[in-house]
Write a protein that binds this DNA or RNA. Structure first.
Lengths: 217, 217
DNA sequence: GTGACTTTGTAACAGTCGTTACCATTGGGG
DNA sequence: CCCCAATGGTAACGACTGTTACAAAGTCAC
């Protein structure tokens, strides 16, 4: 590729790209053809200059006086993120959380296909979530390898989280999303991402008490 | 309070405090009495100096040569975050995601009590999730006000997200957690936090393709 | 074709954050 | 009682990130 210069990209940029992508896709389905950084800024609550600067890290694909071609920008961002082709995803845990994730259409829209679901509860194995059969966790390693699954999502009770992470890692998964509050350990070649509602609540809670005491003062 | 100096606290500090808290609680239940910044650093993958510096923003409560008293530190962090008393929480959407959140014990452990669940599906209203009855959304405003609920969690289909946010805001909620990919608008006095699995996946996906091309090179 | 307007791309700046290095204090052993 | 090891507190530094401001480039009307 001629673009993608060998420059280190700041973390913040990578965090914002998915945000841009979501808005762009929404605009595209609304029938619009181009968008200015100013408009994107409104829709994402991000400084327009920041947006322009973010994008220049990967090349310059706007037209001055016009803006950005939405379709082209969507494709470029997807290509940058690696979301321009399908990634297979395995779900460990077929409870409410697992079902919620499996049912979530947004994943498929972005090329994430849930192709395997595992649980250790014999009353669940064999049943279907959507059109995927729930398999026993003992089949995890083989299935992940056979299907070339790259992403594992942990949606099990906390006590089973580390084991799920171990098995997924051993099976060759490259990314693990952990929806458990447990801090799990993974080999260095696996990228781990934790999502805990409590963390997010505690985080926002701080600002709540902050604004309250300001209001009181 | 004698502590809590009127200094601006960096965002990053507030994001790390819940992490420390989680580990500390785990240590406490393991029976340990004190912990050093070095040990905390191991468990959280955060530079020990960073941890010490974070904590000094709120006072100095370690003993040199010994470490931090775990129980005391837990209480201090909870107090800083505002997690030292109960906060009521309303859930909008009683599907799989809503059920998963309602069932999640971690919330209660940290003082977040789900005291109301709403849905607009007549086949769901009246049923129970845990010991909470599912109410029709038309009762949202009154219930939120009567119970003094401060936090709202949106776990509805995307198309209903903005309406849920509007109603929660109007009812006087102070914090909204949005589990929908939709960008919702809220009044300035409401703190909004978005959580979208797709964003997180796309984010980590970038680093995946990055390490792959490095490995190939 | 020219001038006014729009919008991007980028250089320069300032603030923030995290890290490294060092000093101060505590506890324990001889 | 003194000395040493362990550990927290803090100052200084360097990197990075985001913002502001401006110049370059394109579009549209007449």
């Amino acid at each position: 590729m001629a673009h993608t210069p060998n420059e280190r990209i700041p973390e913040g940029v990578i965090e914002r790209l998915p945000l841009y992508l979501g808005v762009l896709i929404q605009l595209r389905s609304g029938g619009e053809g181009t968008v200015s950084s100013a408009r994107l800024g409104e829709l994402t609550d991000i400084n327009p200059a920041q947006i322009r600067r973010d994008l220049t890290h990967f090349g310059s694909f706007g037209k001055r006086g016009v803006g950005y071609d939405i379709t082209m920008l969507v494709e470029r961002i997807q290509s940058i993120l690696g979301a321009d082709h399908v990634h297979r995803l395995a779900l460990v845990g077929a409870g409410h959380l697992g079902s919620a994730i499996a049912d979530y259409n947004g994943l498929r829209q972005h090329g994430f296909h849930v192709t395997a679901i595992f649980d250790n509860d014999p009353t669940k194995t064999g049943s279907h979530i959507g059109d995927i059969a729930v398999q026993d966790v003992s089949e995890l390693e083989r299935t992940v390898k056979d299907q070339g699954i790259e992403i594992g999502v942990i949606a099990v009770p906390p006590s089973a989280a580390q084991e799920a992470a171990d098995r997924l890692s051993a099976a060759g998964v490259r990314i693990i999303l952990n929806y458990t509050p447990v801090i799990v350990r993974v080999p260095t070649e696996v990228t781990l991402h934790n999502t805990d509602p409590v963390h997010e609540l505690l985080h926002t809670l701080y600002y709540l008490s902050k604004t309250e005491s300001v209001a009181r003062a």
